[in-house]
């Protein structure tokens, strides 16, 4: 099977596109001799084909879900059909309460993300620019970073009660380390040679920071931001679910204990769509900010 499929991976030189249309199988040539250039199968149509296939995949998923539910493999009060869930989702979208719940989640997310990114930027820059601090903090950062953020939920609840503040402690923790590490790597990447060159041209400290450190570190920071945004959303909904501060996560738990399965599944779909939007949004920001600097765009190599 592998030797078959690798065919399509074969690239051809130059700006021409790889073959996609009928392919040799089992040594039998798919195209008869002397037919000349094959029609169609242009890149545009291939993109259309991908989109169509992807759409079919979504339809297939919905259909599988529907059949699975109709066959009652699982108790129907635990697994509503896709259509029931979809109808419920539309109904939720018409409810003002849904939007205020969503708003709660988004506010917690945005606050947590802003605090994490802000703190990490300031601390990361200070630590990154002072070699002594870098060496002194390395072991501590490496120790604190892998601590699972949910481990501090009980502590957060103890200190701040069942509140948004408690949720924020949890939401800030993991993205903070993510961005901090990216900032540290970004500043470390500022080529010492380039820095020396800049110094020899008489750039002051502030100018060096502006013309050298920032452009080099920015791609790392933006990537850190993208990852942090996704993690913060996950933690926002997690903390709502576990701590019980208002938001989509708490509503999901309420629907579970009701039990209101269609509502539960509808909100799970909402969280997926929310995550998708955040991912697409931050990727678009990344592309916009870094379009001038594609060569340095990469994630922390470890």
């Amino acid at each position: 099977m592998l030797s078959e499929t690798v065919t399509s991976m074969t690239t051809v030189p130059g700006p021409v596109a790889p073959e996609q249309a009928p392919r040799a199988r089992d040594g039998v040539r798919a195209t008869p001799r002397g037919t000349g250039p094959r029609p169609s199968a242009r890149p545009r149509s291939r993109r259309t084909r991908r989109a169509v296939l992807g759409f079919l995949g979504v339809l297939g998923f919905a259909a599988t879900w529907e059949l699975f539910a109709l066959a009652e493999v699982v108790n129907p009060s635990y697994l509503p059909s896709f259509t029931t869930t979809a109808r419920r989702l539309v109904a939720e979208l018409g409810e003002p309460r849904f939007w205020s719940t969503l708003g709660d989640t988004l506010i917690t997310w945005a606050l947590g993300l802003a605090i994490a990114v802000g703190a990490a930027l300031v601390l990361g820059t200070v630590i990154g620019l002072v070699p002594f601090l870098r060496r002194a903090t390395h072991s501590t950062v490496e120790f604190l970073r892998p601590i699972p953020s949910v481990a501090i939920i009980p502590l957060a609840v103890l200190v701040a009660g069942l509140s948004r503040e408690a949720a924020l402690i949890v939401v800030v923790y993991a993205p903070f380390w993510q961005v901090l590490i990216q900032v540290l790597y970004g500043i470390a990447d500022v080529n010492t040679v380039a820095r020396d060159t800049a110094r020899s041209f008489g750039l002051g400290r502030a100018q060096r920071l502006r013309h050298l450190v920032l452009p080099t570190a920015l791609p790392y920071v933006i990537t850190g931001f993208r990852l942090a945004a996704a993690i913060a959303l996950v933690l926002t909904i997690t903390s709502e679910l576990v701590i019980g501060n208002p938001g989509i996560g708490r509503q999901i738990d309420l629907y579970r204990s009701a039990p209101d399965a269609p509502g539960l599944y509808a909100l799970v779909l909402v969280t997926g769509l929310l995550g998708l939007l955040v991912n697409l949004g931050t990727r678009a920001i990344e592309r916009r900010v870094l379009h001038w600097h594609p060569s340095v765009r990469r994630e922390t190599p470890r």
């Binding site: 084909r49 991908r50 296939l53 992807g54 759409f55 079919l56 995949g57 979504v58 297939g60 998923f61 699982v74 635990y78 697994l79 996704a230 959303l233 996950v234 909904i237 997690t238 679910l241 576990v242 996560g249 999901i252 738990d253 629907y255 579970r256 039990p259 399965a261 539960l264 599944y265 909100l267 799970v268 969280t271 997926g272 769509l273 929310l274 995550g275 998708l276 955040v278 991912n279």
Partner: peptide, 28 residues
């Protein structure tokens, strides 16, 4: 073709915060 078929759904599943599956799985 399988990748093209599944890609949007996989992106969606990846985007779901894993913890919201806890109530679903508890139910099922």
């Amino acid at each position: 073709w399988l990748r093209a078929l599944l890609e949007p759904m996989l992106e969606f599943f990846r985007a779901i915060p894993p913890v919201v599956l806890v109530p679903v799985l508890m139910l099922v």
